[in-house]
Design a protein around this nucleic acid. Sequence first.
DNA 1: AGAATTCCCTACCATTTTGCTATGTATTAA
DNA 2: TTAATACATAGCAAAATGGTAGGGAATTCT
Lengths: 158, 158
Amino acid sequence: MRLSTKGRYAVTAMLDLALHGGDKAVTLAEISETQGISLSYLEQLFAGLRSKMLVKGVRGPGGGYYLGKPAKDIAIADIICAVDEWVEFTRCSGNKDCRDGEVCLTHNLWDELSREIHNFLSGISLEDLVHRGGMEVGGCNKDDGGCFTTKVEKIEAA
Amino acid sequence: MRLSTKGRYAVTAMLDLALHGGDKAVTLAEISETQGISLSYLEQLFAGLRSKMLVKGVRGPGGGYYLGKPAKDIAIADIICAVDEWVEFTRCSGNKDCRDGEVCLTHNLWDELSREIHNFLSGISLEDLVHRGGMEVGGCNKDDGGCFTTKVEKIEAA
DNA sequence: AGAATTCCCTACCATTTTGCTATGTATTAA
DNA sequence: TTAATACATAGCAAAATGGTAGGGAATTCT
């Protein structure tokens, strides 16, 4: 299970807009520069964001991107959905290749899981991220054997 | 964002053990048959489950697999961890290519998200799944535009 | 002993997805 | 009219996914 870079790039880019945007537009070239993402790749991400009205592009010199609506009205879930497909928590494609009841038990489980994730990411707006620095991140409980943590085990020097 | 088949296969297979196991061993051939998963692939999954002591294999005729411990002591998270790598919610590999504070804001977010998922999946044991049919799955709120739901939109006839 | 049945192990492979590059066009400000 | 920007599409290498293939090794049954 993994989260694609698309999602992260998109969130950080939107964060950029929320922080440095304000009155003047932020160009993709700037974001590309400061975050080390290729311009062309960013453009693809913003195509998705545009289609969901999360950003508004202005062409020509002096142009760039603005947030499509107030930061408090943009949920992290919206951003991820816009660039990622996200789907495919189950692959039983409605065809009832879902044989017996057993399999459906796990279906319910995955359904619940995705709902859980959705609720979590829907409850955090871009503004929350800006103001609270990623919510009240507590003690960073790395006591689960590293399985659900973020792979990085040499981060203690951070 | 997606959950690999490995995780689902493993959970349903473990469910099989929990339901039909009991006194006699369940063979991979049986699981392969009833669930339409290739035997060889199942064997790979069970190698992971074995290494985490979640199952116990018995060779020879009449052999097969038992649960490694009581179903109530096996969390869904354990199963997924055993077969999936799961990691890689962020890719800032501790190298501090995590440039400025901005990026770290999202880091905290992903950290929190994985903790959220972990908590959810840790709180559900194999026994819970057996008894409660996948927890009290409520009204199946499909009101999020299909983004976080399970891709299947023709399941209403279920 | 030997054969059958099961777990165990390792290597390989086709397809899909990811993450990115390249190249071009359209629009607008100076 | 030129430069800066968004917008669009095609292609592509590497990695991950989801398997297959084939050969042991242990155990039980005959």
